[in-house]
């Protein structure tokens, strides 16, 4: 990192110079913070609200090895609205399935099955076992998750992982 040093430009014109070095230092610190602390918005992971179960048994992805998977996001129609703002009849409804930014209608079971099958074929040369990661919004009804599990079982994918928030550090809950 650059040294912080006050200097005078020897122009002899009496001009005042800003010392830019500390500002650059701070800016770089901020960039490093964003790179390290942040998770970039990714194509695979849709923006949805996951659940944190009691004493969550969720394990960080890095600890599970190199991923060889297809991520199926299940988005809720409730979106970012508060529970009171959602029609009770719509509360458990899913908006659509999303696989790598591709939206699949919740009634399109064959479409879902086809994509899972294609992704499995494409990943067949990988050494680790292929699995489906189900990232479902905590509000959607179980039937939508069941469709994904059924479709995965139909194309003979045996492994599944459910996304959940990690246990809070230092918490028993």
């Amino acid at each position: 990192m650059a040294k912080s040093r006050v200097y005078k430009k020897g122009t002899g014109q009496g001009g005042v110079d800003f010392n830019m070095t500390p500002m650059i230092d701070v800016t770089f610190q901020l960039i490093v913070f964003f790179i390290l602390a942040g998770q970039m918005a990714s194509d695979e992971l849709a923006n949805l609200s996951l659940h944190r179960p009691y004493r969550s048994q969720a394990v960080e992805e890095e600890k599970l090895g190199v991923p060889n998977r297809v991520v199926v996001n299940i988005l809720s129609v409730s979106g970012d609205r508060s529970p009171e703002a959602v029609d009770p009849l719509d509360a458990g409804m899913a908006k659509y399935y999303m696989i790598s930014k591709k939206k699949i209608d919740v009634d399109d079971y064959d479409g879902l099955k086809k994509i899972l099958g294609d992704r499995k074929k494409a990943a067949s040369d990988r050494k680790t076992k292929f699995y489906v990661e189900i990232r479902a919004d905590h509000r959607v009804a179980f039937e939508y998750v069941k469709h994904v599990m059924d479709a995965a079982a139909d194309v003979k994918i045996a492994k599944v992982k459910f996304s959940a928030l990690l246990k809070e550090r230092g918490s028993d809950q």
């Binding site: 960039i31 918005a41 394990v59 599970l64 079982a153 599944v160 992982k161 459910f162």
Partner: peptide, 22 residues
């Protein structure tokens, strides 16, 4: 760029399971 692309997402993980064969 980092400020705009940054997504404050809570740390998530996965719970492994198996699917029944049909």
């Amino acid at each position: 760029f980092f400020l705009l692309a940054f997504n404050f997402r809570l740390a998530e993980g996965q719970i492994p399971g198996t699917l029944p064969t049909k």
